[in-house]
Amino acid sequence: MKGISHFITGVAVGTFFPDAVQAAAAGSFVLVLGGIGGILPDFLDFRFARFLEEPDILIDPHPAEFEAQKIANEIAAGIDRVGETRKKLILKCNTMRLGPDWWQQYSLKFDTKNGYVIVKLGPIVNTSQIPLPESERIWPEGRAKIHVPLLPTYGEFTTVDIFSGPSFAIEWRNERVEIDFIPWHRQYSHSFFMALLFGLVCGLLFGVTAGLIGGLAVLAHVLEDQLGYLGSNLLWPLTKVRSTGLKLIHATDAIPNFFTVGTSVYIILFNLDRFSAQPILDPIFFWGVLWLPFPIILAYFFYNKIVTDRAKRVSLLEQQEADLIAETQEVVDA
């Protein structure tokens, strides 16, 4: 889910505590902890974890000397090496900055069916990822053969253009090489351990209710992410892999995000009223009439999703990696 959905869910979680709501009405900022806990897992990943990851293969091309074939060869050789040694490698692709607002785009694709890595040069784009007209150069595509069996993964081109480029974990699993997108995301930060830790810190600093709010807000984030195709490494440090999610939504689907934000706002309003000295909201009218548009549009979303999913069968792994790419994209947009 998008950052704001997690954030406001965390705030909504906090409003279930009557003493916190009453303290807030008297001038306390305790409910802000819910928002902080709600966004904390992604904050840790996108502000810290991604930069501390050490790449084994670094693709750092020069815009004037872009050699697609050389890059494809280097990546394919890395994948082959994992097949031979069974040792995990991290591949990182750097972006090519041309000026304050201009970037040279390139993209790569793992063709797992035919066993190829394909690399190609794209147009020059600005920071909004809008291509500069006529900037796409006719440039030879790079295509290198992979000699080890691959697990199916995201099958489209992944573009590398603005700010920080993507990274991939290349790992031996189930007698094949798996290419795992953005391996630093949804690991320790998205675990029950993190919920416990943040709750403990808040509790020690601000009291029991604050601790519960902080911990449950992190937990709410972790559970919301489980609704997608890719879950999280819930039991870190006991486990090392990210679980499969419930496959209900994609992280950046507009309607589920809007539903979450809208419903959280309704919960916040309702709880603030419920725990006030003189409640004025009629629960039946509030939830039965005013909230009704939200479940209706969510039902419409799921109806559309079922129809689309039937028509287009995409592998789970592909959907999971697409989710990760979309999440990184959100970060770029923010």
Binding site: G3, I4, F7, V11, A24, G27, S28, F29, V30, L31, V32, G35, I36, I39, F43, F46, R47, R50, F51, N94, T95, F163, S164, G165, V331, V332, A334
Partner: peptide, 22 residues
């Protein structure tokens, strides 16, 4: 007051890094 505090925290926490490749 705290709703404004929530907006401030979101503004600051939702700004993502724009460097870090090098």
């Amino acid at each position: 007051h705290w709703i404004l505090g929530v907006i401030i925290v979101y503004m600051l926490m939702a700004e993502w890094p724009k460097g870090g490749d090098r």
